[in-house]
């Protein structure tokens, strides 16, 4: 049953001072798998995009009640919830493509670290833990949302109608995330000497993880017309970031990229030390009480 049914267009909408007019995400989209697709690759690709959103959502949620201001607390939580919504749709699609009896929750809460396919940028601690602070969080959000917006814009033309629809929904959300991060980058860089110092340190913190975003992956190559080739995003992302850096009088950090393990990185399930701790916290309740509902 559609949870929104009780709210929309029953002729009683005038009861609500500001109106409702909600539509369920992806309503009316054809969920059949595209013809001649390797379902294992499609599953893997949905997990890549879904895990990026899920893990960053978990990281951003750590700011709840700890952001510098109440207003910013809500802003970061909104962004986290947008990403969680994207993750749910993508993990659901991954489960559909996989064909095995599992769902978004099984994928989110019962996979082990090596089965997660997110880039390492989203899993590292950029604050509020000891690994960063608000500026590092903004630096990561700027880089990630610039990358993801470029990716989703191309993905709207995907041959998989579900991926195309998820992308179309996500483009509007992530455009706002990027704007929010860019606005804060300008303010932190142009604020006080201290805030500028933190912004520079924040960018240096995340920069070693940037190259991995654009590393072409065999799964993408095996899904022509469905997946986006990450390598093609680099020029556009660089241009956007350079525009923000120029406006903020910041220099692009000169930090060497984090090495992969025999060519394998986050997309292949090889993660940083932070990932295990993050998953332990995220999966703890589900694993302690399997099947519990409320």
């Amino acid at each position: 049953m559609n949870a929104y049914e009780g709210l929309v267009d029953t002729g009683e909408e005038r009861h609500w001072a500001f109106g409702t007019g909600f539509t369920a995400a992806l309503s009316g989209v054809d969920r059949a798998l595209p013809a001649e697709v390797d379902t294992e690759d499609l599953t893997a690709y949905c997990l890549m995009l879904g895990d990026d959103a899920l893990i960053l959502s978990q990281r951003l949620a750590e700011w709840c009640s700890r952001a510098p201001e109440l207003e910013e607390d809500v802003a970061l939580a909104n962004i986290a919830l947008d990403l969680l919504g994207q993750a749910r749709l993508l993990l659901t699609r991954a489960a559909e493509a996989d064909g095995v009896a599992c769902d978004e929750d099984t994928l989110a809460f019962t996979r082990d670290e090596h089965e997660f396919r997110n880039v390492r940028l989203v899993e590292i601690d950029c604050g509020p833990g000891p690994g960063g602070d608000f500026a590092a969080t903004i630096a990561r959000l700027l880089v990630f949302s610039t990358y993801r917006l470029a990716l989703l814009q191309r993905l709207t033309g995907s041959r998989d109608p579900v991926l195309a629809a998820v992308a179309a929904k996500g483009v509007k959300e992530v455009a706002y995330h990027r704007d929010h991060a860019a606005q804060w980058t300008l303010r932190l860089a142009g604020g006080t000497e201290f805030s500028r110092e933190r912004m520079v340190a924040g960018l240096e913190r995340v920069w070693p993880f940037v190259d991995e975003l654009f590393a072409p992956h065999p799964v993408e190559a095996r899904l022509p017309g469905i997946a986006v080739d990450s390598a093609t995003l680099r020029a556009e992302v660089d241009e956007v970031l350079d525009t923000v850096f120029a406006a903020a009088s910041l220099a692009r950090p000169e930090v060497s990229p984090l090495a992969t393990v025999a060519g394998r990185g986050g997309r292949d399930g090889v993660h940083t030390e932070a990932m295990g701790y993050l998953l332990a916290e995220m999966q703890h309740v589900h694993r302690s009480m399997p099947g519990a509902t409320w």
Partner: peptide, 11 residues
Amino acid sequence: RNARDLYTRRN
């Protein structure tokens, strides 16, 4: 932007 996040979350 804060107003957008605080007061228009529910459409």
